[in-house]
Computed example of a mutant assay.
Amino acid sequence: MNPTDFYCDQVLSGRTAVEIILETPKVLAFHHTQPYWPVHVVVIPKQHITSLAALEEGEMAIVQKMLEVAAELCRKITAEHGGCRLSTNCGDHQTTKHLHFYIHSGERIRDVHGRPI
């Protein structure tokens, strides 16, 4: 078990329950377990990939599947909330060492330490 990979260790293993929004054979999208925005969705590959900066040969096809799921969810969230943001982190800015995209909308409801604003 890798304590820095919440998504493999907890979500994909089933140890932490999540509210799934969309699932494909290679990608899982769900509501963030501790949202920082009123709408805060996480999109992950079901295969471990550390980050965009650490992509290895053959992993781009999975990232494309992630982008397809993200695009569908961005269209839906934009239609419902007027707009959204898509982001990812790499390196020291990435607390969970598993590639993930955030899709979020609205005004931030938690600070960078996870405390309510």
Rank of each mutant, 00 (worst) to 15 (best):
M1I: 15
N2V: 03
P3N: 04
P3C: 03
T4Y: 02
D5E: 05
D5C: 13
F6V: 05
F6C: 00
C8D: 12
D9E: 11
Q10D: 03
L12A: 10
L12I: 12
S13M: 12
S13C: 12
V18W: 00
E19S: 13
I20R: 10
I21F: 11
I21T: 15
E23L: 10
E23H: 11
E23P: 09
T24R: 11
T24L: 10
K26I: 06
V27P: 06
L28I: 02
A29R: 08
A29T: 09
F30T: 08
T33I: 08
Q34L: 13
Q34C: 05
Y36P: 01
Y36K: 12
Y36V: 10
V39G: 08
V41G: 03
V41E: 01
I44T: 00
Q47V: 06
Q47R: 08
H48G: 04
H48A: 05
I49G: 01
I49Y: 00
L52H: 03
A54L: 01
A54Q: 08
A54N: 07
E56R: 05
E57R: 07
E59L: 06
M60N: 09
A61E: 15
I62M: 02
V63H: 04
K65S: 13
E68W: 05
E68S: 09
A70P: 02
E72T: 13
C74G: 04
R75C: 10
R75H: 10
K76S: 12
I77M: 06
E80H: 05
E80W: 04
H81D: 09
S87D: 07
T88E: 03
T88I: 00
N89G: 03
C90A: 03
G91D: 05
G91C: 05
D92R: 08
Q94L: 08
Q94G: 06
H98W: 07
L99N: 06
I103C: 13
I103D: 14
S105L: 06
I109L: 09
D111S: 12
V112R: 11
G114E: 04
R115D: 05
P116G: 06
P116T: 05
